[in-house]
Amino acid sequence: MKALQIPAVLIALIVLAAVPWFGSDVLVQFGINALLLAVLAQGWNIIGGYTGYASFGNSVFYGLGSYGVGIAMVQWELPFAVGLAFGVVLSVAFAILLGIPVLRLKGHYFAIATLALAQVMTAIVSNVKIAGQNIGLVLPPLNNDLLFYELALGLLVVATLTIYWLSRSRFGFGLIAIRENEEGAAVMGVNTTLYKVLAFALSGVFSALAGGIHAYWVTFIDPESAFDISLNVKMIIMAVFGGPGTVFGPIIGALSLSAISEFLSSEITSIAGLFFGVVVVAAVVLMPRGLADMLRRFRTTGWRYFAENIKATRL
């Protein structure tokens, strides 16, 4: 990291941490959502951005994290922290059991296979008695947005530090090598199967923790909302918009897109969805490598940056 970046990140962090003390309730609630989305985007960044496997299965981890907390707190009357740990255990088990067969697939096939996982999980959980079947679970309410906000922020910090470590560790280089050329990575000594499963599981840990916090915060979960595939689409859009395979890109993507989406849906309610779509399409065409890459290269290339990307997409 360059010399100026560390103070800048610290200041941003202090400002973010102070939001509940000067911001309105609405802002704090927006903040909890946006921060949890940023955690999800960072979680996806590990398997999708660094390892190059476009997972649509991360909403399964999110759902398992939600149900971990739900089942532990409602059915077994255990504390929240135990619920979070239970959700993480479920996610890691899922990542290992299903990751081993599914991670043999590449590209579109991997995406489709993981897409199916979320659907299957909805159907399964709807029939599990301890999970409240298709009625869902109502968690004991805790009216403390400050706590949820700081928890979400803390989780985002841990996720980001993990990714920072990835970007400069042997493990992270192995993942990047897999993304860039899997066969090439294997003949250079990277245990590709192990690394992919570990990345999938690590990605699952953060998604599950975000799901657990969200479940306790909204105090209600059902199979439809816990394993919602559109949430997975959101985390991909946010990570890719910000810059997949970078340390801060997915955070920037998640926070900025959350803000845009919030603004649009309050100002121009009826066609907000359309505008959001336009923002995403424009971003994909004009800066396919994400905001992070755009900010880095714009200084040297100027407006030509966008022209080159349009040319590269052969519109």
């Binding site: 042997r170 280089f173 192995g174 990047i176 090598a177 993304r179 860039e180 050329n181 066969e183 090439g184 990575a185 250079m188 000594g189 990277v190 395979g245």
Partner: peptide, 21 residues
């Protein structure tokens, strides 16, 4: 030839040193 296209030349080779024998 299959380099890791997005990585620098140095890091391409560093992967070999990080793993390898």
């Amino acid at each position: 030839m299959r380099p890791f296209p997005g990585l620098s030349v140095l890091d391409n080779v560093a992967v070999g040193a990080l793993f390898g024998r």
